[in-house]
């Protein structure tokens, strides 16, 4: 059995997951178990479904054609049935983001579609839809001395009266060839995430497992009219909607009855962390200026000491 620590959870897996940092200590039990096995092709009594998935009570079935079927149960068990004509090395990358993100929703966890970096011992999140540049932002900041906390799945824990905390995702970044090239990250480039994709694992320099207090959340936005480049603070009143829209899978927030959880989380988050939009051109050439504006912003909110 392979052991990992993902988003604050201990994971025991039949399947080796190459993009994850291996757990340093073995625990007798696991929060999440990943096993190879048989899964149904459909769930009877499904209460919600989509083109590739079904929900029935505490079961979620996801079918990725040519890859595998995944049955998620009670938020702690994942059964994987590889497609007979698929390539088994394609499976792990789908477990890491897609399947684990859904599992966290199933656990009732607040989970944002976000990358994150560590700034002065605290976590800063970058939310955005697929292709909005989350991984690229985290990779560029890591190269600038702010280690990666998460690549794609931003898991947040809320405790009454305390600052919300962010759990390190515990995995490697996954970056497209163009981003690796333009950010000069070839030295850390690992294997392709799938043989047929020009997307690669990039190992972090700094591995850590402790969760971090949440300092700020940035919603990434491309600078397209009418939005101009810059960092804008969001009003607290907009926070609840913004967080729900930036859930890992917004659709599942409703389908899994999490709307109230997100509403509560939003009020806890806006009480202790700042919520911004970060609007910038989707252009690698703009990255140094974006990083400079973020550092300025971190000084302004007291996260970084003022430059001498």
């Amino acid at each position: 059995m392979h052991r990992y620590r993902v988003c604050g959870l201990t994971v025991g897996s039949d399947i080796m997951l190459p993009g994850l940092n291996a757990a340093t200590s073995a625990t007798p039990t696991h929060d999440v178990t990943i096993e190879l096995g048989t899964t149904p092709t459909s769930l009877s009594d499904a209460t919600a479904n989509g083109p590739t998935w079904q929900i029935a009570g505490q079961q979620f079935l996801l079918a990725i054609p040519g890859i595998a079927r995944f049955l998620l149960t009670d938020g702690h068990h994942i059964t994987v049935t590889p497609d007979t004509d698929g390539d088994p090395t394609d499976i792990p990358i789908f477990i890491l983001g897609t399947v684990f993100g859904i599992l966290l929703h199933q656990r009732g966890q607040i989970v944002l579609h976000a990358s994150a970096v560590r700034v002065n011992g605290k976590a800063v999140l970058f939310c955005g839809r697929s292709g909005s540049g989350k991984s690229t932002m985290a990779a560029a900041l890591a190269k600038h001395g702010f280690p990666v906390v998460a690549d794609d799945v931003g898991a947040i824990s809320i405790t009454a009266g305390a600052t919300p905390t962010v759990h390190p995702e515990g995995r490697h970044l996954k970056l497209w060839a163009q981003a690796i090239d333009r950010l000069d990250l070839a030295a850390g480039r690992g294997d392709r995430v799938r043989r047929r994709l020009e997307k690669y694992y990039v190992a972090p320099d700094d591995v850590f497992v402790q969760s971090l207090p949440l300092a700020a959340i940035y919603i990434l936005r491309e600078a397209r009219p009418p939005h101009r480049p810059g960092i804008e603070q969001q009003a607290a009143i907009d926070g609840a909607l913004a967080l729900r829209q930036n859930a890992y899978r917004p659709h599942l927030v409703n389908r899994m009855g999490q709307k109230t959880d997100y509403f509560r989380a939003a009020s806890a988050i806006v009480n202790s962390a700042s919520l911004f939009t970060l609007t910038r051109p989707l252009d690698f050439k703009a990255m140094p200026a974006v990083i400079a504006s973020l550092e300025q912003n971190w000084q302004d909110i007291g996260l970084l000491d003022k430059a001498a």
Partner: peptide, 13 residues
């Protein structure tokens, strides 16, 4: 985005 949202699969993979 609609593809990812409705399939629950990351199309980038």
């Amino acid at each position: 985005e609609p593809f990812d949202e409705w399939t629950q699969i990351e199309s980038g993979l």
